[in-house]
Design a binder for these strands. Structure first.
Length: 152
DNA sequence: GCCAACGTTGGC
DNA sequence: GCCAACGTTGGC
């Protein structure tokens, strides 16, 4: 099983929305490296839900990858902001996964806190700016759970 | 709202 | 294939 971190603007879709919906299609990723990480996901993998552009930004909870990567439906929708004219149903360009709610932390583990943790200094989060889907190592995963007040 | 980081596009 | 222009992400 692998671990991941996935970013969403909190005002657009937050952990509260995922808790309500139970599961959602994580679509709209339009960066090749992030897409390749989506394609590397398997059902049962777990991911941190990261709130970006939030007050504070940080890790807000945990979700499970509940369906492996498939063609992102939004790339075919002409009126969708994520429409991709070059994508054909028989040759999709972008991928999505389905994720399911596991838990919301009582308190968001803020970016500032993540920065202070020396065990996290090599996180992709800090080394690769703007990457919205990224791997998390088991050690990083445990560290963040501990910061969240959850047993690792 | 500003702006740094950085991926993408398109002219040449 | 280079690189300037441009657009987006995301912290602050």
């Amino acid at each position: 099983m692998k671990y991941w971190l996935m970013k969403s603007e909190a005002a657009v879709y937050s952990i509260v929305d995922l808790k309500r919906d139970k599961k959602t299609v994580w679509d709209g990723v339009r960066n090749y490296e992030a897409r390749n990480f989506l394609r590397a996901m398997y059902p049962g993998d777990e991911a941190f839900f990261y709130h970006s552009n939030a007050e504070p930004s940080g890790v807000a909870g945990v979700m499970r990858v509940s369906c492996a990567a498939f063609a992102d439906p939004s790339q075919f929708k002409r009126r969708d902001i994520h429409f991709e004219p070059k994508a054909m149903p028989e040759a999709p360009i972008w991928s999505a996964v389905e994720v399911s709610f596991i838990s919301a932390f009582p308190k968001v583990v803020a970016l500032e806190e993540l920065r202070k943790a020396t065990a996290l200094k090599n996180m992709a989060l800090f080394r690769r700016s703007r990457l919205s889907v990224q791997p998390v190592t088991p050690a990083e995963w445990r560290t963040i759970l501990r910061l969240a007040g959850r047993a690792a």
